[in-house]
Simulated scan of single mutants.
Amino acid sequence: MDTSILCNLLGVPGKCQDREKVIGELKRKRENRECDLLLPVTAIIETGNHIAQLSDGRVRRTCAERLSGVLRTVVDGTAPWALNEVEWGAEHLRALISGGSTGSTLVEHACNQLGCGDLNILVERDRYLARTSGVAATVWTLDELLASYA
């Protein structure tokens, strides 16, 4: 799942216009047990940045507390998703620079307005697939450009 999904689930103002739809989709995914959900590190960081940029301090605090609560459930193993544990090293950066399995480099994606955060989510997915076997993985997103690679 990407930042657009996490922001909707947390109700981040200005980033949660599809909240009911996302909550409904999460319930459906959980009830049908159709997939395992992974929370990419990138989605956590980008969501935290969106929260930090909120102008209303009370709302910023409320959203930060929600994010902190969600992260606690991930650590405790009670969240409906798992953290996508990824090693941030030279191999990861090489994959990011080359664009992972997308067929385009980081530079080409930047020129086509796919940000480094979205590209990193794709690279995280690629690396997850490389260390697991017999699974398929897509990216749950509301972003049309990211979805085209998901």
Rank of each mutant, 00 (worst) to 15 (best):
I5N: 12
I5G: 14
L6T: 10
C7M: 10
L9H: 02
L10G: 09
G11T: 04
V12E: 02
K15Y: 11
C16S: 14
C16E: 08
C16A: 12
Q17C: 09
D18I: 02
E20P: 06
V22S: 02
L26V: 10
K27P: 00
R28A: 14
R28I: 05
K29R: 15
R30L: 15
E31D: 14
E31T: 13
R33N: 14
E34M: 11
C35K: 14
L37K: 01
L38K: 00
L39K: 11
L39A: 04
E46L: 06
T47A: 08
G48P: 10
G48C: 01
N49R: 12
H50E: 08
A52D: 12
L54I: 14
D56G: 02
R58T: 13
R58S: 13
V59L: 11
R60T: 07
R60S: 07
R60W: 04
C63A: 15
E65R: 11
R66T: 08
R66A: 14
L67F: 08
G69I: 02
V70W: 13
L71Y: 04
R72L: 06
R72F: 05
T73R: 15
V75M: 12
G77N: 05
G77C: 09
G77Q: 02
A79H: 05
A79D: 07
W81R: 01
A82Q: 15
L83N: 01
N84E: 14
E85Y: 02
V86N: 14
E87H: 12
E87R: 13
W88R: 05
W88S: 04
E91M: 09
H92N: 06
L93Q: 14
R94D: 13
R94V: 06
G100E: 01
T102C: 02
G103L: 04
S104V: 08
S104R: 13
T105M: 04
L106P: 03
E108R: 07
A110F: 14
A110R: 15
N112R: 15
N112Y: 00
Q113R: 15
Q113K: 15
G115S: 05
D118F: 08
L119G: 07
N120H: 12
I121D: 02
V123S: 01
E124N: 08
R127T: 05
A130G: 10
R131V: 10
V135A: 07
A136D: 12
A136H: 11
A137M: 09
A137Q: 05
W140R: 02
W140V: 03
L142P: 05
L145R: 15
A150N: 09
A150E: 03
